[in-house]
Nucleic acid binder design. Structure first.
Lengths: 132, 132
DNA sequence: TGAGTTACTAATAAAAAAAGGAGTATGAGT
DNA sequence: ACTCATACTCCTTTTTTTATTAGTAACTCA
């Protein structure tokens, strides 16, 4: 959480790319680790902080927290606070978020066809196999 | 280009996510800066290192080089070497790469509809506007 | 011999992302 | 007064990503 330097080439390149094509803005949001998993879980009605935390083995509180904030800011999810005791907060997907999960699903299908392809075609290793 | 630590939580989480869903493998490839731009340019027949470099204002040689290597490794593009003088190398998109650009295009359309929405709805600033 | 071209790689530095661990607010129950 | 639970935030360290600079190989032409 250190300061962002606005004059670094890094930041200038980021601006340049966001200007160049909307796609880079999209990837800026959902290209980061955990983000798409969180979004998909929320779509599947895993709506509370603690539940999301349980589902995502290894995510740390602060990372989950900042991702949720980002998703709210980008209007992919909505935050609803219930002033009960103990406090209860729910996150729900917006139409925009839902539309995004559909494209993500296609991206996933692409991966299944083209990335996992090699693996599907490779014969299973045997002990005789020098690659075993 | 420092050593990758295989036992760090960082790396373990990366493995966990790639195991969990193919989508994370996909985003690992094309979620990084410049990658989709390079792929799209190659699809548009900008096929040489120097031309790509010209088109992408601000990218540095080694970054372009490593992205090209990654794309070849992932079989999204193919490298063809012409042993001429001066040396000539061409990159061309594969069917897999082409299929990916189509999904990227949809992702971009999503962005145009949902990210740029606010901006489209906002009235243009005038000098009278306190926000100007 | 030496300059010029293309297509790179290597080493290092700067910046950002991700993780670890402690701390906070609220209000209820004991 | 103290503990518990949820849902966080804050600060620091670790790891990765991105950028900078310099250098290389191969072969031609003057």
């Amino acid at each position: 959480m250190s300061e962002k330097k606005f004059n670094s080439t890094n930041t200038l390149n980021e601006f340049y790319l966001e200007e160049r094509c909307t796609l880079n803005k999209v990837l800026k949001i959902n290209g980061k680790r955990w983000v798409s998993e969180v979004l998909i879980l929320i779509k599947q009605d895993v709506s509370r902080f603690s539940n999301l935390n349980e589902c995502l083995n290894g995510i740390s509180d602060n990372v989950l927290s900042s991702i949720l904030n980002e998703l709210v800011k980008s209007k992919l999810i909505e935050k609803e606070i219930f002033h009960q005791v103990p406090l209860r907060v729910e996150y729900h997907i917006t139409p925009g978020g839902l539309a995004l999960t559909k494209v993500m699903h296609e991206l996933c299908d692409w991966g299944k066809e083209y990335i996992d392809y090699e693996m599907r075609m490779k014969p299973t290793f045997t002990r005789q196999d020098p690659n075993y």
